[in-house]
């Protein structure tokens, strides 16, 4: 099971793109094996410190351990897969 947390700051183009790209990748490679939580830092700024969030958007893989982070709008699918440690087609 992949527990993913996406940090955004308001409904920006980058955030919306990131969310859309993430869903696409997850559906392709992790269908049924993932859960995404979206955190809007504009609403909950105190949550930024916990996961050491600087860049927006940031995706944090809480599970499986170890924690991994990827930043950006996830337009580069290959890098997302590397970042989440998912083998294509696996």
């Amino acid at each position: 099971m992949y527990e993913l947390r996406l940090y955004v700051a308001g409904q920006t183009v980058k955030s919306l793109n990131a969310f859309a790209n993430l869903i696409k990748i997850c559906e392709t490679h992790l269908a049924g094996k993932y859960r995404i939580e979206v955190i809007d830092l504009l609403k909950n700024p105190q949550l930024a410190a916990g996961d050491q969030i600087l860049a927006i958007p940031t995706l944090v893989r809480k599970l499986p351990k170890p924690i991994k982070k990827i930043i950006g709008d996830m337009s580069n699918t290959l890098r997302v897969l590397v970042g989440l440690d998912i083998r294509p087609g696996g």
């Binding site: 700051a9 830092l41 860049a55 927006i56 990827i70 996830m74």
Partner: peptide, 28 residues
């Protein structure tokens, strides 16, 4: 005191981003 830890090895860059998180933290 807010300690910001930056470690490149943990972070994979996958496209466009900004540092809004830093601004949010600082502002908060």
């Amino acid at each position: 005191i807010d300690h910001v830890r930056v470690e490149r090895s943990e972070i994979e860059e996958t496209g466009e981003y900004d540092l809004e998180g830093l601004f949010v933290r600082l502002s908060h």
